[in-house]
Design a protein around this nucleic acid. Structure first.
Length: 295
DNA sequence: ACGCCCGCCTGTAAGC
DNA sequence: TGCTTACAGGCGGGCG
């Protein structure tokens, strides 16, 4: 029997705003640092490397030039032209401690030590996250689309992207080959502001809705970054220092299933789109012909 | 070529 | 109260 859970959508995985918050702190901490020592205890976190030693050797003695971000990927530029790529996926965290003797959190898989002291730790219970060192052009990320924060899309850009796309709009927003950084939380939040249900075909978006999309996405990202990102009840996402993000309290639909819509009072509902749950307001985000059968 | 769906994992909480 | 089990999620790869 299928359990009727009312409280889904409570998982936080870092999306663009959360990764940007981490990037800023990470750059402040790592810039001009030279790694003296790297300890790998979780093999899965460095699974792309031939061996853990390969990963370690690529980092030891290297100095960090800058820390960039593309979508949900962190890109740490090294002085030899290589790039340390970090993806937190579902449950990964980067944590900084000035004290190397500080107790390790459970699921600490990689520890990176700058000459100047302190320690950067990669913590990841589900081990979906990973890190690897690659060449400057980062071929692994060549298939990814534009970053809508560092390279914002205008309404016309969105129109061009959505044209002739039969994909459901939510799936398209979350398709990292099209634009990077948008996951379940921020796609739901933006779709609510657009007044569009996530299962509508992307190609059906009108010009006015594209204008809202362009504006709402930047506004939501800006507010989320300023709030330190979204941390939900699982407290899965925290920043480099373990601090929680407060943007979840500003969510209008995500993780609010069963609660009244802030705009119209209708009950926030959920639907499955491409195997992912989506929260939406049945009134503010009207569907097409189909009538809802229950409730 | 493009859409869709599985597998990877494990903490959590529903359900007994 | 305690045990079992379904489930969420991003992404890569395989399938249709």
């Amino acid at each position: 029997m299928k359990p009727g859970r009312g409280c889904t959508l409570r998982r936080t995985m870092p999306e663009l705003p959360e990764v940007e918050v981490v990037r800023r702190d990470l750059e402040a901490v790592l810039r001009d640092c030279t790694f003296s020592d790297v300890v790998v205890t979780g093999l899965r976190s460095v699974r792309r490397a031939e061996t853990p030693e390969t990963f370690v050797h690529a980092l030891v003695g290297r100095t960090v030039i800058a820390v960039r971000r593309h979508g949900k990927y962190l890109l740490v530029d090294l002085d030899d032209g290589h790039v340390l790529v970090v993806h937190l996926r579902m449950s990964g965290q980067l944590r900084w401690t000035p004290d190397r003797a500080a107790p390790l959190l459970a699921h600490t898989h990689v520890r990176m030590r700058p000459v100047s002291g302190g320690e950067l730790r990669f913590v990841d219970p589900r081990t979906f996250g990973e890190m690897y060192v690659t060449t400057a052009n980062v071929p692994e990320l060549a298939h990814l689309g534009r970053d809508p924060w560092s390279d914002p899309l205008a309404a016309e850009d969105w129109r061009a992207l959505l044209r002739n796309r039969r994909t459901r709009i939510k799936s398209l927003l979350m398709d990292q080959r099209v634009v990077v950084g948008i996951g379940n939380i921020y796609s739901d939040e933006v779709l609510f502001r657009m007044g569009v249900r996530g299962d509508r075909p992307a190609t059906m978006l009108k010009k006015a809705q594209c204008i809202v999309l362009a504006e709402a996405l930047l506004e939501v990202f800006r507010d989320a970054i300023n709030a330190g990102g979204s941390t939900l009840s699982d407290a899965q996402y925290v920043d480099l220092y373990g601090r929680l993000g407060t943007y979840a309290s500003h969510h209008l639909v995500y993780a609010r299933v069963g609660e009244p819509c802030v705009q119209c009072g209708a009950t926030v509902a959920r639907m499955n789109i491409g195997g992912r749950y989506s929260a939406y307001c049945p009134k503010c985000q009207p569907g097409t012909r189909r009538r809802r059968q229950h409730q």
